[in-house]
Design a protein around this nucleic acid. Structure first.
Length: 494
RNA sequence: GGCCCUAUCGUCUAGUGGCUAGGACACAUGGUUCUCAUCCAUGCAACCGGGGUUCGAUUCCCCGUAGGGCUACCA
């Protein structure tokens, strides 16, 4: 006998390829990954593709992409194999059939020949009578001969699990404590569908057992079906894993986070240019926190401090503002080369700036942008002066003539600076000090208003109502382009 | 309807049988500033309700209430 060593933790993330990677799923995957990895355990990826009707082509790739983006590398999975392959349920049909048969043999399951319209009518009737919709067990009353006959005639059938009467089934949940259900509330769950595919309930139990999963992490919505799973473990004579039912991610209206009420696909956030570190950090904090005031957490930090015991029971609203804040924090710390690489796909190609210039541009815009695609938008005017209304050039009560005077001064000053001295710092000091010597452009005012000089200049250079300071823009644009844009502005006013 | 879960600022949350109930986001105001953003300072804002238990409950218990989840040959 092998001496029992300390159990190695094995967790799994088991999504259905029915579309895209949901942001809530990513958080579940994150917690699942953390639980395994902080204990030197294994994190398994399994595809639950037993619903042939909902299967979506390409969904698998989206799943892989999202997990990889977030940095959640699995140890075993359909793409990389592993000791318990295959990791795709559609390729494990024999296994489920075998186990369904075992249950039949043990008299813990039975054939059901009711078709869907029959079941639907049954439900209708029950709800009309204000009863809980539940299979009435009519096929359980079939004699052995009747069953044999129907099977011989190849009548379509499913296999249902038997539920004992009056049993109290207790779930020992790592985040919720003890929860008990009365078996009388449970339905005779279909385990094997007419098409030979298993339902989730059979498949998840069989696979988690076969794959030696020690901790089942999934969201709260699975709580009500857990007693059925526990019963199945019992029927098979297997040890049940540890359960951890995580809180749900919610829409603003506190319903289960869903499409139509905002972006829920991880890919949407990738496309908008959210940094994976920010997303991981934010998601980790939606339902967990270290109990300190530290809010910025890298994956390493999470690996160190995460604990299921501190996971909350109540659902958490997904809030874009806070994500934006996290993204800003990470954007701020991003080294220049990484910033450039990350932004590259979002940048216009209408002008070839060199790397140094690009980095300056990005650094100017990153603190004004929620994400990378916003940076891409905000950066456009550097590449090409947008058309803008001449009214935008106007600062407070300035007349067109005054604006022209102001721009003429700027133009003259900029033109006088040599190319090698055309830096933001120089431009700023020259512009500012010369401005002080000039007569006030707005007659009769004691205090000189810098806006009279700087606003028209900035708008001439950027075409934007809001933008970084004109000095920085001018430096990046260079003397020639800057003067050109000022001239264009003056012409607009003529 | 039935079963189950949950409950601290608008949001994410810390926390305790006795505290001015803490932090972050958002918001507001002020400072810096040509604008926006950043940054700094300040402010606004919460223990769902009712009963117990207790010298004392936001905290423990019960009952309400509210919200949510499940109730498929979907996961």
């Amino acid at each position: 006998m092998v001496k029992k060593t300390k159990q190695i933790i094995r967790t799994r993330f088991a999504p259905s390829p029915t579309g895209f990677l949901h942001i809530g799923s990513l958080r579940t995957a994150l917690y699942t990954y953390l639980l395994a990895k902080q204990n030197n355990g294994q994190f398994v990826l399994r595809l639950e593709d037993t619903d042939t009707k909902r299967y979506v082509e390409g969904a698998e790739q989206a799943l892989f992409k999202g997990l990889k983006w977030a940095g959640l590398q699995h140890d075993e999975g359909p793409d990389i194999g592993g000791p318990y392959k295959p990791y795709k349920q559609s390729e494990r049909l024999d296994i489920y059939k075998k186990y369904a048969q075992e249950l039949l043999d043990k008299d813990k399951a039975y054939y059901c020949f009711c078709d869907e319209p029959t079941l639907e009518a049954m439900r209708q009737e029950q709800t009309a009578k204000k009863q809980a919709p539940k299979y009435d067990g009519r096929c359980l009353k079939l004699s052995k001969d009747e069953v044999a006959q129907k099977l011989a005639k190849q009548e379509p059938h499913t296999i249902r699990m038997k539920i004992p009467a009056g049993r109290v089934i207790e779930i020992n949940d790592l985040v919720r404590g003890n929860i008990s259900y009365n078996s009388n509330e449970l339905d005779d769950q279909i385990l094997l569908k007419a098409d030979g595919y298993p339902t989730y309930h059979l498949a998840v139990v069989a696979d988690d057992h076969e794959m030696a999963i020690t901790h089942v992490t999934r969201t709260e919505e699975w709580l009500p079906s857990t007693p059925k799973h526990i019963l199945l473990y019992e029927y098979f004579g297997w040890d049940a894993p540890q359960w951890a039912h995580l809180p749900l991610l919610l829409n603003e209206d506190r319903t289960k986070m869903s499409k139509r009420k905002g972006d829920v696909a991880v890919d949407d956030y990738i496309k908008k240019g959210y940094l994976s570190e920010a997303m991981v950090n934010y998601l980790a904090f939606l339902g967990w926190n270290p109990g300190t005031e530290k809010e910025i957490y890298s994956m390493d930090g999470l690996l160190r401090d995460f604990s299921l015991a501190k996971v909350h029971k109540a659902g958490a609203v997904f809030n874009l503002e806070k994500l934006n804040w996290y993204n800003a924090q990470y954007l701020k710390q991003l080294p220049d080369e990484k910033l450039l690489a990350a932004c590259q796909p979002y940048l216009p190609t209408t002008h070839n700036f060199n790397q140094e210039q690009l980095i300056k541009i990005l650094n100017l815009e990153k603190e004004r942008s929620a994400n990378l695609s916003a940076i891409g938008e905000n950066v456009k005017f550097f590449f090409e002066l947008p058309t803008y209304d001449k009214a935008l050039l106007k600062w407070k009560e300035m007349t067109d003539e005054k604006i022209k005077e102001s721009l003429a001064v700027s133009k003259k000053l900029l033109a006088e600076i040599s190319d090698e001295n055309f830096t933001a710092e120089n431009i700023k000091s020259i512009l500012m000090s010369e401005a002080e010597k000039m007569p006030s452009l707005s007659r009769g005012k004691a205090l000189r208003d810098r806006g009279e000089l700087l606003w028209p200049l900035r708008v001439a250079l950027s075409g934007q109502k809001n933008s970084p300071p004109p000095f920085e823009i001018a430096e990046i644009l260079g003397k020639e382009e800057s003067v050109k844009r000022i001239v264009a502005a003056i012409e607009k006013l003529s």
